[in-house]
């Protein structure tokens, strides 16, 4: 009896985030480029966020941004502002907006939109140099939950 109850809770736990997930086209933007609502309803995991930010095939944020709070990560880029203190400078909603599509906050920015599927000029399928066969072949760079994880890590960056 106990066991069955536990199982039910686990299943419900898996089902919930998927149901609540907001698609890239449906992001509820505020005028100022911030996004108040979580994309998944599941709190972000800052440890996961850190991995995403430093992994080439994922967010690869350190390609452009230096983060002194990660002294163990080699070859941090310097074409974008250093991220230390980002959690003091911005609210969670603003950071979510910047990660989803920074151009809503900084209109001319060359920071790539991490949860954006278009419109783009000559988009390819990831780094294959091949055009998409159907629109769904262009996937956002990060998943909804990965965005939440990154935002959770950014919120820990206070000085």
């Amino acid at each position: 009896m106990h066991r069955i109850l536990a199982l039910t809770i686990v299943v419900a736990g898996f089902g919930l985030p998927a149901m609540a997930e907001i698609a890239p086209e449906d992001v509820p933007w505020s005028e100022d480029g911030s996004v108040a609502e979580s994309l998944t309803g599941t709190p972000g995991n800052p440890d996961e966020g850190k991995v995403i930010m430093t992994t080439n095939a994922l967010g690869n944020c350190v390609a452009c941004h230096a983060i002194e709070a990660m002294p163990d990560v080699p070859f941090q880029g310097d074409i974008a502002p250093q991220l230390d203190g980002a959690g003091d400078r911005w609210t969670e909603a603003q950071l979510r907006g910047i990660v989803i599509d920074a151009k809503r906050t900084f209109p001319e920015s060359f920071m790539p939109g991490m949860y954006k599927v278009g419109p783009f000029i000559r988009p390819g399928v990831a780094y294959t140099a091949k055009p998409p066969e159907k629109p769904e072949d262009i996937k956002p760079i990060l998943s909804a939950q990965q965005v939440e994880d990154v935002v959770a890590y950014l919120m820990t960056l206070s000085e």
Binding site: I79, F110, P112, F120, I121, R122, P123, G124, I141
Partner: peptide, 14 residues
């Protein structure tokens, strides 16, 4: 100066 691809970056950006 055209921003190509999903990263929307031009030659000039880099």
């Amino acid at each position: 100066y055209t921003r190509y691809g999903q990263l929307e970056m031009s030659c000039a950006n880099c």
